[in-house]
Design a protein around this nucleic acid. Structure first.
Lengths: 239, 239
DNA sequence: CTTAAGCTTACATTTACCTTAAACTTTAAA
DNA sequence: TTTAAAGTTTAAGGTAAATGTAAGCTTAAG
């Protein structure tokens, strides 16, 4: 994710009117992935299936209440949750925040306030300002040193610079090193969710990457293929 | 920093009464490093010198206003800032959030709300959500360790990699370990709902799997066959 | 003993992946 | 603006590992 506007948002509210309104406000602001549910059951399904990156949750719902729904979500995930409620009582407000809500807005609210609070919550969650200049990792594969800050591979024969795609792919592989990463997952890391042309493109990039990180690209030691499942980066030694 | 309570907090407010009160609330909660300033000038000095990791800022200050002070802080740092104000007007609220405040509380407030909002803001800033990818299980069968993330079986004689079919089958068996899994169910796990050729194909794959996970494939200890019903994985020890 | 269910092995086939080169696109330099 | 260079995608032919098939064998139950 490069931007908070890439976040998939789930709106849970029983009033169709309000769902449409909130959805419209969000879309106008630039959020493209907005989905909505009318009750707890539907919300649970969408949550499991769509894996939203932010939730806007009404307190009053036909088949349960927002608080217990939040507790369920919190048990399995840490996505930012923004409460929306007509009740302006301190008690509810505190209940919401205490249970782990990220913010709380009372109806009626200004569109601008919703946007501002949502942006604040999302950027805090996904682009933590303070720790933002976190360095990318540097690691070794045998004799080779790979620096993901500068995007370079230093071998005993010379130094290569990684291209954009190679960089994304190796980054993803490193994140999950030791584990199998599906081709699909790698494609999403390098090209985003947009469909893309040929299966084979990935293979060509993998080949290129191997040319840079493998002593013998044709019989890989580090970037292994797991037939039918994906690829796997092994032999990583962190620095 | 291991904990939000390690955060150094700066309170900026002109009323000594309120400074003491907020400070007391924070200390009681467990924050140990709390400092305070009465006006902009003092606040600037402390900010530069002490480098606080969180700021609680009043809007009304004798020698300026909280908003412009925040703008100064934001120019050089990205610490979480929590606004505190008597004015309960929408305008101010939006102004604060728009400039990059992390939250906004109106006086009078409940101690508990201050704490909750502060904790929310600090933990978001310093302990951001790491998008947790759920891991697949790792478990043992006697001496052998099976890792479904990397798709490997480590025995005392060596290490095998599971193929795609083996992976699906073992996954399904593990899901229901201790219980009988019908052949039909296993087939659906590995081949989907599409009909497929021969009964015997499954047996062949079971045999291959046994070759990898059983010390003696011909007299299985873990992957047992239950005549007329299916197969059963026993002796699983979770890791 | 007979039968049915499952096991085993070798061999055939398929499919997922590899490789290379050429075409296209973007970026940087002249 | 043109040219060159680097990066990326497409395409086609090749290969071996994974999978499927078949036939004979073993075991358990009645």
């Amino acid at each position: 994710m490069n931007d908070i506007f890439d976040c998939k948002l789930l709106i849970v509210d029983d009033e169709p009117e309000l769902r449409r309104m909130v959805s419209e406000i969000l879309r106008r602001e630039g959020f493209t992935k907005v989905i909505s549910a009318a009750d707890c059951q539907e919300a649970r399904q969408l949550f499991d299936h769509e894996k939203p990156e932010g939730v806007i949750l009404d307190v009053c719902l036909p088949d349960g209440d927002g608080f217990s729904l939040m507790r369920e979500f919190r048990a399995i995930s840490a996505v930012p949750i923004l409460f929306l409620s007509a009740r302006d009582e301190d008690e509810n407000r505190l209940l919401g925040l205490g249970l782990g809500a990220d913010d709380y807005i009372t109806k009626p609210f200004l569109p601008r306030e919703l946007i501002l609070r949502l942006r604040a919550v999302l950027s805090r969650a996904y682009f933590p300002v303070v720790l933002q200049k976190k360095k990318k990792p540097v690691f070794c594969l045998g004799e080779n040193e790979i620096n993901l800050n500068s995007g370079t591979v230093t071998t005993n024969t010379g130094r290569y610079t990684l291209t954009a795609k190679e960089f994304s792919l190796l980054g993803k592989l490193y994140e999950n090193h030791g584990n199998i990463v599906t081709g699909d997952s790698l494609c999403r890391a390098a090209w985003g969710d947009d469909l893309y042309g040929y299966e084979n493109t990935l293979m060509v990039h993998i080949r290129r990457l191997r040319e840079k990180i493998e002593p013998e690209p044709s019989s890989p030691r580090y970037l292994l293929t797991v037939r039918g499942l994906g690829y796997k980066l092994t032999g990583v030694e962190d620095k």
